[in-house]
Design a protein around this nucleic acid. Structure first.
Length: 482
RNA sequence: CGGGGUGUGGCGCAGUCCGGUAGCGCGCCUGCUUUGGGAGCAGGAGGUCCCGGGUUCGAAUCCCGGCGCCCCGACCA
């Protein structure tokens, strides 16, 4: 419930604003267990919309869903050297079950590569079994030091795709394909622009050959890794003996990929679009795209107005629009406006006696503050058009914000100054040396978010490393990150 | 694990210095009047004052010992 009327502003304290939005919109709550979160119905509804869209995209690219167990034998993790090193510190271990100490402790999955490739070893014999394209929706546990609702919690929900291919080229193609799927989802559904590209070794997934990611810039000018896609090479197939017989009759290890996005996307959504009045949710992912608020004084008015509201709801719902009528009594219309605004509903229809008399409705958009009057006749088509525009406007605004916060062609000094003050993205040449990367992190707190894909690179290719001035081998994008 | 802060109805806080049996705002419940941008009045419910021990006639308050949570640093989708 909203106990104080105004949220802390983004400018005053971005973290406080973020937490207050989640409370105000009733998206999530803290759990009795440190670092865990309860996803409340309003928050889960957004996740469900995300799942629905992504799941369809996975199916459209030939993947099937399956489910692998939460518990994994501890020994599995250590089969891939880099993998165990990457995850060991944050793994929860079950030592007792059924009142007895277990012979071999079980780990609670921090990710499922090990158990999945152990199973793939049983299922794959021939090149005819490839490619194997499986996704699972699951919860995972990583024992984090410091947590934040949606962005980093001890347990979180995600999907993890795991595929096996006959050739390295096919695995690379799959890795890139799914990165593209994520990008499309983030832009078309979340209205969140992202940079895609390769991670440097220091940010690479433990056990992967190459990690690609989608990076988004939040309103506080910090970057957020929104999704990752890994080319695992043969690292896991060697560790778990996932072999197949080729058409030529030889035996080879399969080439794997894995890719995932999590409930962190809900946090990304919040920090990309919301304002000081509360959540702003793109229509395509909103639980309710339209809320109808009836306005009335007398009982007579109430009956006719509600009647009209319900009729409108049916018309809109029939057109596939997610719509809700807020017919609660004893609450003034203004109070309802504030509540639904805080929850991020894109469009609001106000229906009062005057509107019913003139067969019109008042439409208010979540952003912009203007109200318009539309005839009831043909409303569903009109609303659909407004929603499309709203969705497009959000993406355009977010893109404009990101570009305004992007610095290209900077000197080392400008880079340092930018990170000390406004933050944002800094594009620059990189010599490829880990020493430079580390030094930059120590001096500026900024890390290389991605080595951007060609379409995101600067028009002029940097020739010098932004830090050491040596020859640049690749362009990099730096930012302070979540 | 280091540094700082904080624990009192659902939420936010006062009361602690100086001991006397718990209060304010919001929220919640009931009724009446309201309803085109956060309603008003009246009545009401709700508290192991973080936990344990001690001092005292008497402890939210003083003493000792624990625990939780938050913020800042080292790790991370």
């Amino acid at each position: 419930m909203a106990d104080t009327k105004a949220l802390t502003s983004r400018a005053a304290d971005f973290s406080a604003w973020y937490n207050e939005i989640i409370a105000r919109a009733e998206l999530a709550d803290y759990s009795p267990v440190r670092g865990c979160m309860v996803i409340r119905p309003n928050g889960y509804a957004i996740w469900e919309q995300m799942q629905r869209a992504l799941d369809q995209m996975f199916k459209d690219t030939g993947h099937q869903n399956a489910y692998f167990p939460l518990f994994i034998p501890q020994s599995f993790l250590s089969r891939e050297a880099e993998h165990v090193e990457g995850f060991a510190p944050e793994v929860a271990v079950v030592t007792h079950g059924g009142g007895k100490e277990l012979e071999e402790p079980l780990i609670v999955r921090p990710t499922s590569e090990t158990i999945i490739y152990a199973m793939y070893a049983k299922w794959i014999q021939s090149y005819r079994d490839l490619p194997l394209l499986i996704n699972q929706w699951a919860n995972v546990v990583r024992w984090e030091m410091r947590t934040r609702l949606f962005l980093r919690t001890t347990e979180f929900l995600w999907q993890e795709g795991h595929t096996a291919h006959a050739t390295e080229a096919e695995a690379e193609e799959e890795t890139r394909r799914m990165l593209g799927v994520y990008r499309t989802f983030m832009e078309d559904w979340m209205a969140m622009p992202v940079l895609t590209g390769l991670k440097t070794d220091s940010e690479r997934f433990a056990g992967a050959l190459r990690t690609y990611s989608c990076e988004a810039l939040m309103q506080d000018n910090k970057a957020l890794q929104a999704g990752t896609s890994h080319n695992l090479g043969q690292n896991f197939s060697r560790a778990f003996e996932v072999t197949f017989q080729t058409a030529a009759g030889t035996l080879d290890h399969v080439w794997n990929t894995s890719w995932g996005v999590s409930t962190r996307l809900v946090g990304a959504l919040i920090m990309t679009h919301s304002d000081d009045n509360g959540l702003v949710c793109p229509p395509k992912l909103a639980q309710y795209q339209v809320v109808i608020v009836p306005i009335h004084k007398s009982d007579d008015e109430r009956a006719t107005v509600l009647d009209a509201a319900v009729r409108l709801r049916k018309e809109l719902a029939a057109a596939g629009i997610r719509v809700h009528v807020d017919s609660r009594e004893g609450m003034k219309p203004g109070a309802k406006y504030y509540e639904w605004e805080g929850r991020g509903v894109p469009l609001r229809l106000e229906v009062g006696p005057r509107d019913v008399a003139s067969s019109s409705v008042v439409l208010a958009r979540r952003t912009g503050g203007k109200k318009e009057t539309f005839p009831m006749e043909g409303l569903p088509a009109r609303i659909a058009g407004v929603m499309d525009q709203f969705q497009a406007d959000l993406l355009a605004a977010a893109l404009a914000r990101r570009e305004a916060a992007s610095l290209r062609g900077a000197t080392k000094e400008q880079f340092i100054a930018r990170m000390e003050r406004e933050g944002g993205l800094v594009y620059g040449g990189f010599c490829g040396r880990g020493a430079c990367e580390t030094e930059i992190k120590e001096h500026t707190k900024a890390t290389i978010r991605v080595l951007p894909d060609p379409e995101f690179r600067s028009p002029e290719v940097p020739s010098r490393c932004i830090w050491c001035g040596g020859p640049s081998i690749v362009e990099a994008v730096w930012a302070k990150a979540y």
